[in-house]
Design a protein around this nucleic acid. Structure first.
Lengths: 129, 129
DNA sequence: GCAAATGACGTTATGCTATAACATTTCATT
DNA sequence: AATGAAATGTTATAGCATAACGTCATTTGC
């Protein structure tokens, strides 16, 4: 079991380890089921750990899947772009500076102060198209 | 009570009218509660109507809110972008060709075939910032 | 015409997702 | 030790969405 990042509590480390091991999105309840042998018993234990991990940028929430995935980059830019394959379920996290710029431009034009961005693209990945 | 579009069934028209009248996002259950006087009784009646309306592009689903909003444009051939104010709850639907282009470029670079795009920007609107 | 296919509808039941509320524990700092 | 902040454990509940059944009306093709 890896100490994948410093300063994590036991529950947070368990949840993060599980997500990293999976490499794919997992629902909170799937995580809970996987961690029952480790002693977790209630959804709230998982949700609380996920909240902290998302705050730190170690985990991303996929709104369109109601699921969570470990961040695959070491630098945790808050605005990630996800390519979600509808056939195989793979999720690719992209860094998209061009998109960041376009979003910033759009927000500026509307006089809108951006806090966070949800950008999830669904379709078929390279291997499945 | 407008016949807001042709070819809608009674339930679909009820749901769409309610969303248009609201002008803001509504959850499926909020719609159901509003339409109980009109005879709707079960969530599935609302969800089925919403499915058809979303298929036609008359309604959008806001993934990050688990809610639905009437499309404010008459034609909707593009992917919509939503600016969601975290303070007043207003949702602004934008047409963003520049973003479309950036998304297409990104997908092309990853050899990813885009089916649909979820793009929801949260922050403070002009009046609330 | 009439059978088959289609799609909407109604209803009950169920499952999945997420948080409220409250008591307790842990741990760093003073 | 005393304090305060954060994490934990637990039960209960709220909120979101669909499965599975049967019915009805309309369209399509023979």
């Amino acid at each position: 079991m890896g100490a994948l990042a410093e300063g994590l509590t036991r529950n947070q480390a368990l949840v993060l380890d599980r997500l990293v091991a999976a490499g794919t999105p997992l629902s909170a309840y799937a995580i809970l089921d996987a961690l029952r042998p480790s002693g977790l018993k209630a959804p709230l234990q998982v949700y609380r750990a996920l909240d902290r991990l998302v705050d730190r940028g170690l985990v991303h929430r996929l709104e369109s899947l109601n699921a969570f995935i470990a961040c695959c980059h070491d630098q945790h830019d808050r605005t990630a772009v996800f390519l979600i394959c509808q056939r195989c379920g793979a999720v690719d996290e992209e860094d998209a500076p061009t998109l960041q710029g376009a979003i910033a431009d759009l927000a500026r034009a509307s006089n809108f102060a951006v806090d966070s961005v949800v950008l999830e693209i669904k379709g078929l990945c390279r291997g499945c198209r």
